[in-house]
């Protein structure tokens, strides 16, 4: 009794909401908006643009899910979360899904009771240093001061990397990417480390991106993907297959340019099933027949989202690499729509 009294007082706010988590789809429909957790601002992945509209690669996934469920890609309430607050926000029901460069790990999936619905970016942890330091490999970083975002897998990887290479370092924990930038640029840290995609995005926002290099070592596997709470499999399926629809659409050659044309009917039965002109996949998910079409209309297929937000023609300039379709030698591979 005494124990539960103390416990109760600390968690009134935290867990009261999670009891009603069973039917997220109904909640989202009743609310009319999707609450989507994103970063506090990482150019290319999720950041407000000049008009205050959220834009980016992760934002595209949120908009696709909103379009598939509600038919409106703008019906999204974006909730900025930090590395520390994101899991609490999702577990407490404050957000319906989290699309925030979150690494799929065993303990997050199993112990924290989340469900990773897929991988939308295959990443790895890298290091960025100023060119003038003349460092060419991460193994030369003995004694360096390293800025890390706290509450992420990066700080664990970093500890493992320096320990296994038997070199020392001075960690400087930082709460957000925005706080890390001035510290790194003023020289309070020699090195900034986070996922390689995040480094590219951060560097793109610098005044002189050319003065900084990303070291060749990638010290970890960071499969980033959207996630939902355990225990609501219907909702998990919706988010999973919306992501798969974006990936499959690229593989099948469905783009925002030819979407209307293909929706009228095509010779490829898989395209027809995906776009809802054949079969009843939408019904199985509890959505409209044209759910995938609406999701694709929101921002195009996976490849289009990639090129528009983080691709080689953007300031961030990431190449597809591991994130190419499996047919092009990458790792993207959607299960079949049938």
């Amino acid at each position: 009794m005494k124990k539960s009294v103390i416990l109760g007082t600390v968690t009134i706010a935290g867990l009261a909401a999670s009891a009603a988590a069973a039917a997220t789809l109904d909640d989202v429909k009743a609310r009319g908006t999707l609450n989507c957790g994103v970063t506090t601002g990482l150019v290319g992945f999720a950041a407000p643009d000049a008009n205050g509209e959220w834009d980016g690669f992760d934002v595209g996934v949120c908009r696709a899910v909103a379009a598939a469920v509600l038919g409106d890609p703008t019906a999204v309430e974006f909730v900025p979360t930090t590395g520390k607050t994101r899991f609490t926000a999702l577990a407490s029901g404050e957000i319906d899904m989290l699309a925030r460069n979150t690494t799929w790990t065993f303990s997050r999936d199993v112990d924290l009771k989340f469900e990773f619905v897929g991988i939308n970016y295959y990443d790895g942890q890298g290091f960025m240093v100023p060119k003038e330091l003349g460092v060419s490999s991460a193994k030369e970083l003995d004694g360096a001061t390293v800025c890390i975002q706290t509450g992420t897998t990066t700080e664990l990887n970093l500890a493992d990397f320096f320990r296994s290479n038997n070199i020392s370092y001075e960690p400087v924990p930082i709460e957000t990417n925005a706080e890390a930038q001035p510290l790194y640029l003023e020289g309070a840290c020699d090195v900034y480390t986070t996922d390689a995609s995040g480094l590219a995005a951060t560097r793109a926002a610098f005044e002189n991106p050319g003065d900084h290099v990303v070291l060749p070592e990638i010290i970890s596997k960071e499969p980033l993907g959207p996630l939902v709470r355990h225990g609501d499999n219907e909702w998990g399926d919706i988010v999973r297959w919306t992501l798969n629809a974006l990936i499959a659409a690229e593989e099948l050659g469905i783009t925002s340019a030819n979407l209307e044309e293909l929706a009228a009917g095509s010779d490829n039965p898989e395209i027809n099933r995906l776009l809802g002109t054949e079969g009843n996949l939408g019904e199985m998910l509890g959505l409209e027949a044209d759910w995938a079409m609406k999701a694709l209309m929101a921002g195009g297929n996976y490849g289009e989202l990639f090129e528009k937000n983080i691709g080689e023609n953007t300031p961030i300039g990431l190449s597809r690499g591991l994130n190419a379709q499996w047919t092009d030698g990458g790792l993207l591979y959607s299960p079949p729509f049938r």
Binding site: K3, S4, L15, K113, G231
Partner: peptide
């Protein structure tokens, strides 16, 4: 009130499959 909060917490934790 305290007992209600405590029981509520324990029940919700159990529902989410978590423990202390």
């Amino acid at each position: 009130l305290m007992a209600f909060l405590g029981i509520n917490l324990v029940r919700n934790l159990a529902a989410a499959g978590l423990n202390i």
